[in-house]
Simulated assay, not measured.
Amino acid sequence: MSEQPLDLVNLTIPAKPDYVGIARLTVSGIANRMGFSYDDIEDLKLAVAEACTNAVDHAYCAGEGEIEVSCNIYPNRLVIVVIDRGNSFDVNEVVRRTGPISMESSINSVRERGLGLYLMKTLMDHVDIKGDNGVIVTMTKYIRKDVVESHVEPSTSCRSER
């Protein structure tokens, strides 16, 4: 039996660029509440934005569809699943076409060649992409509570309960 999340937050947005920010804000709020660092929250927001933007740009015709974003909250990690039920694609083919990024390439050609997939895989601890009857992107980020930046001193003050 697999481990059940402590909490599950589901969000469904129209597959339109105007709504990608809502997914970013939702993930940011959840990650902040869980205790992720600022840098990790920024990574999570960018990875979710890339997954949602890929769905907006490639899954549906003229924004006629929905994107589901599920945030599975565990004690030590956040697992985000972004689902569209639009056009599927062959992940291995996109990765093969992407190849190494050269300095001679324009930013537009890099973007069209899988930069979003590269970013998601770089920013997250684990990324799994399945393309069958739509696309399911599962991204995992672990909380690193034992990492404290050298310029941060531990708090010695007590906060009273409200």
Rank of each mutant, 00 (worst) to 15 (best):
Ser2Thr: 12
Glu3Arg: 15
Gln4Asn: 08
Pro5Tyr: 06
Pro5Thr: 08
Leu6Thr: 14
Leu6Cys: 07
Leu8Glu: 02
Asn10Cys: 12
Leu11Met: 01
Ala15Glu: 00
Lys16Arg: 08
Lys16Ser: 04
Lys16Glu: 06
Pro17Asp: 12
Asp18Ile: 11
Tyr19Pro: 03
Val20Met: 05
Ala23Asn: 01
Leu25Pro: 01
Val27Leu: 04
Arg33Leu: 11
Gly35Pro: 12
Gly35Leu: 04
Gly35Glu: 00
Phe36Thr: 04
Phe36Met: 03
Tyr38Leu: 08
Asp39Gly: 15
Asp43Cys: 03
Asp43Arg: 07
Leu44Phe: 00
Leu44Ser: 00
Leu44Trp: 07
Leu46Phe: 06
Val48Lys: 02
Ala49Leu: 07
Ala51Glu: 06
Ala51Pro: 06
Cys52Leu: 05
Asn54Arg: 10
Val56Gly: 03
Asp57Met: 02
Asp57Glu: 02
His58Glu: 09
Tyr60Arg: 05
Cys61Arg: 14
Ala62Ser: 12
Gly65Lys: 11
Ile67His: 08
Ile67Asn: 06
Glu68Gly: 11
Glu68Phe: 15
Val69Glu: 00
Cys71Ser: 13
Tyr74Gln: 07
Pro75Cys: 08
Asn76Cys: 10
Arg77Gly: 05
Leu78Gly: 03
Leu78Glu: 00
Val79His: 07
Val81Met: 09
Asp84Leu: 03
Phe89Ala: 14
Phe89Ile: 12
Phe89His: 01
Asp90Arg: 13
Val94Glu: 04
Val94Cys: 04
Val95Asp: 07
Arg96Gln: 07
Arg97Ala: 13
Ser105Trp: 14
Asn108Asp: 11
Val110Glu: 00
Glu112Cys: 15
Arg113His: 12
Arg113Trp: 06
Arg113Cys: 08
Leu115Phe: 08
Leu117Asp: 00
Met124Thr: 04
Asp125Pro: 00
Asp125Met: 01
His126Met: 13
Ile129Phe: 04
Ile129Asp: 00
Asn133Leu: 15
Gly134Cys: 10
Ile136Ser: 13
Val137Tyr: 04
Met139Asn: 01
Arg144Leu: 13
Asp146Asn: 14
Val147Thr: 08
Val148Gln: 01
Glu149Pro: 15
His151Glu: 03
Val152Gly: 02
Glu153Pro: 15
Cys158Phe: 15
Cys158Met: 13
Cys158Trp: 15
Cys158Ala: 14
